[in-house]
């Protein structure tokens, strides 16, 4: 039954992706291509956060690593841009492992804290080695163009490439979170101590999850660079990392299909939805809706409201509509249903 639902959902997604070009303008298609890019990044982060229970506030930087890899290979070494994508993924994945191997030995809060330092450190590194990265100015890629001898509109081409890759990465993610490895991931999330006792090396599992998630983000970053045709330190600010984590929560951590909603949110909140909502409000009050920062306020408020009303995100809402109950992956389970034990201050089991 679950398998059938998954197949049907995949079919619906593929159909929507194939049909979209007949309905939307080239400009919209370009935006939808970026949705695919964010989808890939969110799938990776969801494996880490949703399935392994590790918060990362630094994965925007791994997108950055992928983007810079692609850019440097294309601009300085004359590679074909499509061929750089897997390399971007692998390089970011290695960076992820290099960080994850030491960092994932720490329990929950320490890891989240350490990841928070990644984006700003990444920017610092970019600026420190300008001959390699282009420094504060960054680097420009060639104009977006179709390849393989096809003469397509660049936006349509980019849309096709991004969604083809996303539709490969999605089943791949399913393969990762199902099966033995996936069970190990969830075991780590639900109880680190119990899984250690059962012979699962939590640090190894967490590092692997960190590497995989960074790989996904690297692929997304490579595509992103090709799409927007430039990279500089400001392309991958700390806000991007936060936005990715927000996408996970809004999509529904622990649900891979939920990431489609998350990706739509990440792409459209700042440029379309935020301003639309603000305009609605400003008819009531007199607000300057083009002011800097206003979009951030709206998106932060949306995040808060979702946390209160639908802590399982869009996927949780869909599930509730379909089944009438909101069973959720362990991510949003409450801290305790029994009062804590006054003798030790430890929550009752």
């Amino acid at each position: 039954m679950r398998r059938v639902t998954a197949l049907v959902s995949f079919g619906v997604l593929v159909t929507a992706v194939v049909l979209a070009p007949t309905f939307f303008t080239h400009y919209r298609l370009f935006q939808l291509a970026l949705v695919a890019v964010y989808l890939v990044a969110l799938l990776g982060l969801d494996i880490l956060t949703g399935f392994t229970g590790q918060i990362s506030l630094g994965h925007g930087a791994f997108m950055g690593v992928g983007a810079y890899t692609t850019t440097i290979l294309v601009v300085d070494h004359g590679w074909n841009d499509l061929l750089t994508i897997p390399v971007a993924g692998v390089v970011a994945g290695l960076f992820g492992l290099a960080f994850g191997l030491p960092a994932t030995r720490f329990a929950g809060p320490y890891l989240a804290l350490a990841t928070f330092a990644i984006p700003l450190s990444f920017i610092g590194l970019l600026k420190r080695f300008p001959h390699f990265t282009g420094g504060g100015i960054g680097k420009n890629l060639p104009q977006l163009h179709s390849e393989l001898g096809l003469h397509m509109n660049p936006s349509v081409w980019f849309y096709a490439v991004c969604w083809m890759i996303a539709l490969v990465m999605l089943p791949l993610a399913f393969g990762i979170v199902r099966g033995r490895f996936g069970r190990a991931l969830r075991a780590v999330r639900d109880s680190e101590i119990a899984s250690t006792a059962n012979g699962v090396s939590t640090a190894t599992i967490k590092s692997a999850a960190f590497g995989i998630s960074a790989f996904y983000c690297g692929v997304a970053g490579g595509l992103y660079a090709i799409g927007i045709t430039y990279v500089n330190p400001d392309t991958f600010p700390i806000d991007l990392s936060i936005l990715l984590l927000t996408g996970i929560v809004l999509g529904g951590a622990g649900s891979l299909y939920g990431m489609v909603f998350g990706a739509l949110f990440v792409e459209f909140i700042r440029i379309s939805w935020g301003p639309t909502i603000l305009n609605g409000i400003s008819r009531v009050h007199h607000l300057d809706t083009h002011a800097p920062g206003s979009g951030l306020v709206v998106y932060g408020l949306i995040l808060l409201v979702v946390l209160y009303l639908a802590p399982a995100g869009a996927a949780g809402v869909v599930r509730r509509l379909m089944t009438g109950r909101s069973t959720v992956a362990g991510w949003s389970k409450p801290r305790s249903t029994t009062p804590s034990d006054p003798a030790t201050g430890v929550e009752a089991p």
């Binding site: 995040l303 808060l304 946390l307 801290r335």
Partner: peptide
């Protein structure tokens, strides 16, 4: 009574809101 992760996300939402509000005001 929410999970620790939900509370952490709420503080992140607060981060975004305050950052935006300061720029806005």
């Amino acid at each position: 009574r929410a999970s620790v992760l939900t509370v952490v996300m709420a503080t992140i939402a607060l981060l975004v809101i305050l950052n935006g509000a300061a720029a806005w005001i």
